[in-house]
Each structure stands twice: as C-alpha cells, then as structure tokens.
C-alpha cells in the first residue's frame, strides 16, 4: 500500500474521532446536528476512500448511503423535529463537559490499546488503525448517549455510534453489501421510530427531557 493512501485513510478515520469529540463539546442542539452531519460526510469520504484503495466498488454504495441518509436526511429531519417541537436549544448534560471530555480521552486510549494488542497478528496496518478508531467512535457515541438528558441528543449519540460501526465494516474488507444496506435501513427505521416516539413524549409531557418519563414512572432521581 502506498504511503499516501494509508495517510489519507488514517486522516479521515482520525478526523471522525475528532468530530466525535466536537460533538461532546457542543452545547447547542443545532450546532450538534450540524456537527453530526459533518461526521456523516467525513464517514462517507472515509468509506469512499476505502472503496478506492481496496478497489471494492460496493463500498461506494455504502458511502452514498451514508452521505444521503446520515449526512442529509437524518440531520434535516432532526432539525425539523426540534423546530416543530420547540425543544430547548441547549444541550442538557448530566456532568460537565470537561469530565466528559476526559472520560472520552480515556475511552480512546482504551480502544487503541485494546485493538492494537488484539490485532497484533494482522498484517494490514490500515485495518488495525481503522478498527481502533472505529471502536473509539462507537464508545464516544455511547458516552454521549449516557451523559445527555435530552432524547434528541441521545438519538444523535446513537447515530454516531452507528457511524463507528460502518467505519469498522468498511475497513474490515469483505463485509457484504447486503449487511451494510440492512444496517443503514435499520438505522433509518430506528430514526423514524424514535421520531414518532419523540412526538408522543412531547404530546404527553410537553417536553422531550427523558426525566419527565422517569417522573411519570414514579421514580426519584
């Protein structure tokens, strides 16, 4: 593999992780959605680049799927939801941004340590790095789901987690297209379900803060 090919792939995967951190840092919902769209575009680029260097044409389809669904449709739909529901424009966090960022760094360190160890026998350096970055993106997505109160931000966390999955799949060389398509569709359906769900919550509680749900179930925090 050419040095340049490797570097570009590395750059794209690395910037996905970087954007994940940016998502943690956002404190406005619109900017969060924009950052998420940026991550999806970067994912599309990364997958397309993988398609180019692996010569695997079906990956272009994956890239296109990522670009269309996650780069445009999903952020646009979420924008509309936020507008129509008149949700708080601020991201409500559980803990402060700084501890979350620190935890995120720990997670990245963990995933790199783990993946580089586990894949020691693999010859393909690119796949190793890619897997480490993908796991970081997944864990950061989860971290975001855990540390946010608002349902919309949790949806974004879930979608970003899924970005990590696609990145791993693209790097792994040989994941069939049908799997990716089904994953993409399941994400879309999850999006629809969650959207409907959000409307229902909103109708009932006048808020999409998940804590209203908890209060409804009669629990203390």
């Amino acid at each position: 593999m050419h040095g340049l090919d490797f570097d570009i792939a590395h750059l794209l995967a690395g910037s996905l992780v970087l954007v994940s951190f940016m998502m943690i840092y956002q404190d406005r919902i619109y900017s969060l959605l924009n950052t998420f769209a940026l991550q999806a575009v970067l994912l599309a680029l990364a997958v397309a680049w993988q398609a180019w260097i692996q010569g695997a044409h079906h990956l272009y389809a994956s890239a296109a799927l990522a670009l269309v669904f996650k780069g445009t449709i999903v952020p646009w739909a979420l924008h509309r939801i936020v507008q129509r529901l008149g949700i708080h424009r601020e991201v409500e966090v559980v803990t402060g941004v700084v501890p979350t960022m620190l935890a995120g760094m720990g997670l990245v360190a963990l995933s790199i340590l783990l993946m580089l160890q586990l894949t020691e026998s693999a010859e393909n350096a690119l796949a190793r790095e890619d897997l480490a970055f993908a796991l970081s993106v997944i864990l950061l997505g989860m971290l975001m789901m855990v540390t946010r109160r608002n349902a919309v931000t949790q949806v974004v966390g879930f979608m970003s987690l899924e970005n990590g999955l696609i990145l791993a799949a693209a790097g792994a060389q040989g994941m069939p297209l049908v799997v990716e398509i089904s994953v993409a569709f399941s994400v879309l359906i999850a999006m629809i379900v969650i959207g409907v769900f959000l409307f229902r919550i909103r109708e009932r509680f006048d808020s999409v803060d998940l804590e209203s749900l908890d209060e409804f179930r009669g629990e203390r925090r």
């Binding site: 559980v94 997670l107 963990l110 995933s111 340590l113 783990l114 160890q117 586990l118 864990l139 989860m142 971290l143 789901m145 855990v146 109160r149 998940l210 804590e211 749900l213 908890d214 629990e219 925090r221």
Partner: peptide, 25 residues
Amino acid sequence: LTIRRYLSLVFGSLILLLTGLTIWN
C-alpha cells in the same frame, strides 16, 4: 432504573469487559 441508568449500566459493563480484556492480554 431510568433509561439513562440502563444505558450507563450497559456502557459501564462494556468498558469493564474491554478493560479486562486489555489487561488480560
């Protein structure tokens, strides 16, 4: 538990297992 606590539980156990795997290796 609340939804977020469930998620935290899953997340926590995943991290725990991954850390265990790292140390064990």
